[in-house]
């Protein structure tokens, strides 16, 4: 007997970072740690750390919302070179 049930949070195994054609790059010297990027990220993959905003590229799909909502424009979207 096996129903199609899943274990919690196992989507983390999907590294959606390989969907990306652009990556967010953060100029942490300008970052004011407001948390807008972290709040508005659809993929929960950019975090405000001690150093400032820091993306987790394992999951980042490169949508650019973080760069758009950043009030001090310290995040730039740059093309992925592959």
């Amino acid at each position: 007997m096996k129903p199609a049930n899943g274990k919690p949070g196992t989507s983390m195994e999907n590294k959606t970072g390989n969907w990306r054609s652009e990556r967010p790059e953060v100029d942490q010297s300008k970052c004011i740690k407001c948390g807008q990027c972290q709040l508005n990220c659809p993929d929960g993959c950019i975090f405000v750390t001690e150093k400032g905003a820091e993306p987790n590229y394992d999951y980042c799909k490169g949508c650019g919302i973080c760069a758009n909502v950043c009030p001090v424009k310290c995040i730039k979207m740059v093309p992925e070179e592959k």
């Binding site: 007997m1 096996k2 129903p3 199609a4 049930n5 899943g6 274990k7 919690p8």
Partner: peptide
């Protein structure tokens, strides 16, 4: 917590249906 009523791609779907049939 578990996730119930998931969707299954062709790799899994038939297995679940036949499993039900056998049971």
């Amino acid at each position: 917590p578990i996730t119930m009523g998931m969707y299954a791609l062709p790799t899994h779907y038939q297995g679940f249906r036949i499993d039900l049939h056998q049971d």
